[in-house]
């Protein structure tokens, strides 16, 4: 059992519905984006090409963040998700510096300027590292992660990579990942 996400770059138009859904669902503060969409271009005017690259925690099999975490707050679940135990984290930020995918944030509730819903949770996250957890609570209830559910273009597919009948499994033959030469063995893949 290993959860994975495959993102189809031919379908992403950079509308950021995923980012909004992620921010609402996870009640993240200003500047904290568990998932975000990068805009990349190559060439020069007028022969320029552009595409959007959604990124999130890649849920590495060999996570750098886990390796460097001094307190053991970062751990891996059996289904391949990297999680942070908020009660153990001491907020040293070492994991955020070590993460090769810009996926980790340090949570500081001064980044919450307003008493706005979905930003007003009683927060045990204060002073700790945070990141995308594939919306594990939703996933365990049989739902998709918020970004997958929100994508208007169905560019994101989520599922169990070990299940031969799953859609992610069938997409794997074409899938590539970021910094794959580094051997982190990620669980987020891209097709194009």
């Amino acid at each position: 059992m290993k959860y994975a996400m495959v993102i189809d770059l031919t379908k992403c138009v950079g509308c950021n519905s995923c980012t909004a859904a992620c921010k609402i669902d996870n009640s993240t503060g200003f500047g904290v984006k568990y998932g975000q969409v990068l805009e990349l271009e190559s060439g020069s005017f007028p022969d320029v090409t552009k595409f959007y690259l959604p990124i999130l925690c890649m849920q590495c099999e060999n996570p750098e963040c886990l390796k460097v975490c001094p307190t053991g707050a970062t751990f891996k679940t059996d289904d391949g998700i990297v999680l942070i135990d908020k009660n153990k984290c001491m907020g040293c930020r070492y994991c955020a510096a070590a993460c090769p995918y810009m996926a980790r944030y340090f949570y500081d509730d001064s980044g919450r300027p307003l008493d706005v819903p979905r930003m007003d949770l009683e927060d045990e996250r204060h002073g700790t590292a945070e990141k995308c957890d594939f919306c594990i609570d939703r996933v365990r209830e049989g739902e998709n992660p918020a970004c997958v559910q929100a994508c208007p273009y169905e560019a994101r597919t989520f599922g169990d990579i070990d299940d031969p009948s799953s859609r992610v499994h069938s997409l794997m033959s074409r899938a590539k990942s970021l910094k794959e030469e580094e051997g982190f063995n990620v669980s987020v893949y891209y097709i194009w």
């Binding site: 509308c15 950021n16 519905s17 980012t19 909004a20 859904a21 921010k23 609402i24 307003l114 008493d115 706005v116 819903p117 979905r118 930003m119 929100a150 208007p152 169905e154």
Partner: peptide
């Protein structure tokens, strides 16, 4: 058929905005 945008998704913050 499943279209949506960030504005709609974030309407929950607009709705209860202080």
């Amino acid at each position: 058929k499943g279209s949506i945008c960030p504005k709609s998704i974030a309407s929950v913050q607009l709705l209860y905005h202080p």
